[in-house]
């Protein structure tokens, strides 16, 4: 079954591969609480105590790590989809 053309499937292929690699790595970095990524956490600016901040930050880090991995998994799906489409398209042009 053909859904998208050769260019779109190639684009999907490239972005999926890139997305899988980068998002898996980013998930890893969130998981080990990388300081460089602290600005990208969904947490408030103000906290009353240090402990409160730590718990919020840790849970946000973990949440973001899982979100990254979820996104990576979705990209695995799009990778499979675009790979199949790419295959269909290349078959179509070969014939």
């Amino acid at each position: 079954m053909k859904i998208c053309g050769p260019k779109l499937s190639l684009c999907g292929l490239i972005i999926s591969v890139w997305g899988i690699i980068q998002l898996v790595l980013m998930g890893l970095f969130f998981y080990i609480n990388s300081v460089a990524l602290i600005e990208d956490l969904p947490i408030d600016e103000e906290f009353n105590s240090v402990e409160e901040f730590y718990t919020a930050a840790t849970s946000a880090y973990n949440q973001n790590a899982y979100n990254c991995w979820i996104a990576a998994c979705i990209y695995v799906l799009t990778l499979l989809l675009s790979a199949q489409q790419f295959y269909v398209n290349s078959r179509a042009t070969a014939n």
Partner: peptide, 29 residues
């Protein structure tokens, strides 16, 4: 990074994963 990819990363909860997928594609392009 701050204007685009952060939007996806700063989503709270589990919908963030789906949001991140879309935003990442934008950011990549």
């Amino acid at each position: 990074w701050n204007m685009v990819l952060s939007i996806g990363l700063r989503q709270e909860g589990w919908t963030g994963g789906i949001m991140l997928t879309i935003v990442f594609a934008f950011w990549a392009i």
